[in-house]
């Protein structure tokens, strides 16, 4: 009985998603690249002369 319970609990523990770093890497890469590109676009569009 206890053995069965242990194996069930172990199975639940295994239920955690293993690895998945490739998703994290992709997500952070998209996030940082996107923000950086937007920053570059803001820099490129900056007002050239001070408005009088």
């Amino acid at each position: 009985m206890m053995n069965a319970l242990h194996s069930v609990l172990a199975a639940v523990g295994e239920g955690r998603i293993q690895g998945g770093w490739e998703y994290v890497k992709a997500a952070y890469a998209i996030c940082w690249t996107g923000l950086a590109l937007y920053a570059v676009s803001l820099w490129a569009r900056r007002p050239r002369e001070e408005p009088k």
Partner: peptide, 27 residues
């Protein structure tokens, strides 16, 4: 980014994938 990617523990159910939350939710 360091706290989210390295310092914080992985989630009990979602594991390391949950680290996406630290960028997704604030965004």
């Amino acid at each position: 980014a360091w706290t989210g990617l390295v310092w914080a523990p992985p989630d009990r159910e979602m594991g390391d994938v949950q680290r996406i939350m630290y960028a997704h939710v604030p965004m």
